[in-house]
């Protein structure tokens, strides 16, 4: 018997099949690899350099409370956009949300610079389909055994897989999003949202402090550093959360839970729980586990902006637990 989470995941891969022909599900092309390299440099390498600049600048110009506020607000907005929007809503459909909330989550998620919502969704559904097997875009466990293999796997899963990778067929993996006019619109303006995510903290920093220095530190802390921090958190799910940490359920992949990371990445590091119950809006699966992403979904529900929130029952959870002999 499949549980409900598995049923949803299973159903997702059944949709829109061409009759009588095996569909091409990923493609490698020099044209796409060129675009991927450009994206990698702009939104994965530049934030590292920006963060280094911000740290060096600290020696000459102490951080202001305005910089910190800009960092926290844009870190939370773009991070929640990824966790609640890209991940729990668009990829796994673990709850339903109104059009304005879908648009806002898509826009904030885009600001994180991790790809357009349709690409991200397609790639993440493929990750679940193949979890740690050949074809998984970012598994750390396919690079040989021993410490050297693990280390190579870590670097690939955490960072370098994005330089050039097979690109998924979005019509196969994300047909539901392609039917959503709101999300098509958000997706088409991906680069606009990234630029706005950098311009807004820059403008606020400059206007509030009435100085060019304020604009610069606003850009660095509200733009570059928060992009870097959100990315490192999400990258850790691909690397650390498939390498170290605890396992509680029977799953086909090698996913793990890392509790201490949870407060810093919106509860996402209950990653093993998530692989066991991909259709669950809650990753913590219990009130006492820190899962800010789920708490915000509950808050949205309180205002009538989210509904049909899916969470497995206690019995469903217990049934999947690893039993020691």
């Amino acid at each position: 018997m499949l549980n409900r989470g598995d049923q949803i995941a299973h159903q997702m891969f059944q949709e829109v099949q061409l009759p009588g022909q095996p569909r091409q599900k990923v493609i490698d092309s020099p044209h796409l690899h060129k675009m991927q390299r450009m994206h990698f440099f702009l939104f994965d390498v530049l934030p590292i350099l920006g963060t280094a600049c911000a740290i060096v600048l600290l020696f000459f110009h102490p951080i202001t409370s305005l910089d910190l506020t800009l960092f926290l607000v844009f870190w939370a907005l773009s991070g929640l956009g990824i966790s609640i929007g890209y991940h729990r809503l668009f990829t796994h459909r673990s709850f339903k949300a109104s059009a304005p909330v879908r648009a806002a989550l898509g826009i904030f998620g885009s600001m994180a610079g991790q790809g357009g919502v349709i690409s991200w969704t397609a790639m993440h559904r493929r990750h679940h389909e193949l979890g740690d097997q050949e074809g998984d875009l970012h598994s750390p466990n396919l690079h040989g055994s021993g410490l050297k293999g693990k280390l190579k796997g870590f670097v690939h899963a955490h960072f370098t897989w994005m330089v050039a990778h097979p690109y998924p067929n979005v019509v196969h993996y994300a047909p539901d999003l392609l039917k959503d006019r709101v999300m098509i619109w958000v997706n088409r303006h991906y680069y606009t949202w990234i630029v706005l995510g950098l311009l807004i903290p820059t403008a606020i920093g400059g206007l509030v402090s009435q100085s060019w220095m304020g604009a610069l530190t606003g850009f660095l802390w509200g733009g570059m550093v928060r992009m870097f921090v959100v990315e490192q958190g999400i990258f850790a799910l691909n690397s650390l959360c498939h390498l170290i940490g605890r396992r509680r359920f029977v799953t086909d992949d090698q996913s793990t839970n890392i509790s201490w990371l949870a407060p810093f990445i919106f509860g996402e590091s209950w990653h093993h729980n998530h692989h066991a119950f991909p259709g669950s809006a809650s990753f913590g699966l219990a009130w006492y586990r820190i899962d800010p992403g789920y708490w915000v979904i509950r808050l949205l529900a309180l205002f009538g902006q989210a509904w049909d929130i899916k969470v497995p029952t206690k019995e469903q959870i217990e049934r999947r637990e690893i039993r020691s002999a």
């Binding site: 022909q21 044209h31 979005v170 019509v171």
Partner: peptide, 29 residues
């Protein structure tokens, strides 16, 4: 029509399956 690079790439993949030949993406882009 509303096809961005993600959708154009998907179209290319399904077109290749239908035709049984490889289509350089440049033709579409």
């Amino acid at each position: 029509l509303g096809l961005d690079s993600a959708l154009t790439t998907a179209l290319a993949m399904d077109l290749e399956t239908w035709l049984g030949v490889e289509i350089p993406l440049a033709i579409l882009f």
